[in-house]
């Protein structure tokens, strides 16, 4: 009727194949050896489930690592945990000789250096992200994002080396005198100035966290749907208004997330800070004075910590640092995930 039907050209076998098809059937002699071989292979269900469990075990090892870090830090800081309790973080005396430990100067140093770093880095990082996503010529974009990735990959100790020999002299001779002249009245920039100190630490931290913030900001900005930009442009907005209203406003949660992630990195950054902060367990109003952070005091003093209480105090600082960075990172990841959900997050 509708379709012209060819009769099948191959003759139908007289009977259906008898039941019991496990018998290997001959196409050619080799083929039959192949079939016999394959039939002889088992279901490999044992290998499969072993493999699956092994993979699962390795995935779970990530939990194990976190648990291990936590238990080791807690058990080895028992002495000071028991002796000082919560007052450990409120006391400002750091006196290893008399076994009197208060971690407040380091908490203060960590907070101030990190905040300083954020103040310096965030505007720059957002500027770079805007430039890279919205106005940079394509050819330059690849190069610049490569440069920012590279910046993120430079080891902390190399930053520290550079800071000691290039950044600190630069600050001491040109930047700090200017700051003392202009902002000396606030008391934040007061002599004596050695170059090394809180401000130098803040600057090197800013340089180090810039790439993280800017590349993550770039990511959340790219995740803003194109339609949002067009909607704003269609209203007759200029390019800058489009970036401000169409992109930055939509990406703001993610940008906050990336800033907090940068904060997390700044809080725990060790070597570069330890090399330029001046290692002094004191709280000074002047940012030019030497100070110490939680991470830097561990790096600088742990090797010479001779008695158990001293070591316990430093390990307790490590424990606090661990808990703080875990909370900060969790918070930041949740924010970044909320925005880039759907697109897999890159490893920062």
């Amino acid at each position: 009727m509708i379709l012209r039907i060819q009769e099948p050209r191959t003759p139908k076998p007289a009977d259906d194949e008898p039941i019991g098809g496990l018998v290997p059937v001959v196409v050619s002699p080799q083929a039959s050896t192949v079939r016999t071989f394959l039939v002889s292979r088992g279901s490999s269900s044992i290998a499969d489930s072993t493999f699956r469990w092994l993979m699962l075990l390795c995935a779970l090892s990530i939990f194990a690592i976190v648990a291990l870090i936590a238990t080791e830090l807690v058990t080895h800081s028992q002495i000071t945990l028991a002796k000082f309790g919560w007052k450990f973080f409120l006391g400002s005396a750091w006196d290893p000789v008399n076994a009197n430990f208060g971690a407040l100067p380091f908490v203060y140093g960590t907070l101030v250096s990190s905040i300083l770093a954020l103040i310096l880095a965030v505007p720059l990082a957002i500027g770079v992200a805007v430039f890279l996503t919205e106005m940079c010529p394509r050819a330059l974009r690849g190069f610049l994002s490569f440069m920012t990735e590279l910046l993120a990959a430079i080891p902390s100790v190399v930053y520290g080396l550079w800071a000691i020999f290039v950044l600190v002299p630069l600050l001491r001779e040109h930047v700090d005198p200017l700051l003392i002249r202009l902002l000396g009245w606030t008391g934040l920039f007061a002599p004596p100035d050695f170059g090394i100190g809180m401000f130098a630490a803040g600057v090197i931290l800013a340089i180090m966290i810039l790439p993280i913030i800017s590349s993550l900001t770039r990511e959340v900005m790219t995740a803003v749907p194109h339609s949002q930009r067009e909607a704003v442009l269609a209203l007759g907005a200029t390019r800058w208004e489009m970036i401000r209203m169409g992109v930055l406003r939509n990406a703001r949660i993610g940008i906050v997330g990336s800033i907090i992630l940068g904060l997390g990195r700044a809080l725990g950054e060790t070597m570069a800070v330890a090399m330029v902060i001046g290692s002094s367990p004191t709280i000074s109003k002047s940012l030019l004075a030497p100070a110490a952070t939680m991470a830097s005091v561990i790096a600088n003093e742990f090797a010479e910590a001779s008695d158990d209480t001293y070591r316990s105090a430093l390990i307790e600082i490590a424990l606090a640092l661990f808990l703080v960075t875990i909370v900060v990172n969790m918070f930041a990841r949740l924010l970044v995930w909320a925005v880039t959900r759907g697109t897999p997050a890159r490893v920062a």
Binding site: E17, I19, G20, G21, L22, L38, V39, R41, G42, S43, S44, S45, D48
Partner: peptide, 20 residues
């Protein structure tokens, strides 16, 4: 489902079925 008489869901494994 019987392939050549063998019930592929109860009498053998998925891997062996797919080899046939």
């Amino acid at each position: 489902v019987r392939v050549g008489g063998l019930d592929i869901y109860s009498e053998t494994s998925a891997v062996e079925v797919r080899r046939r």
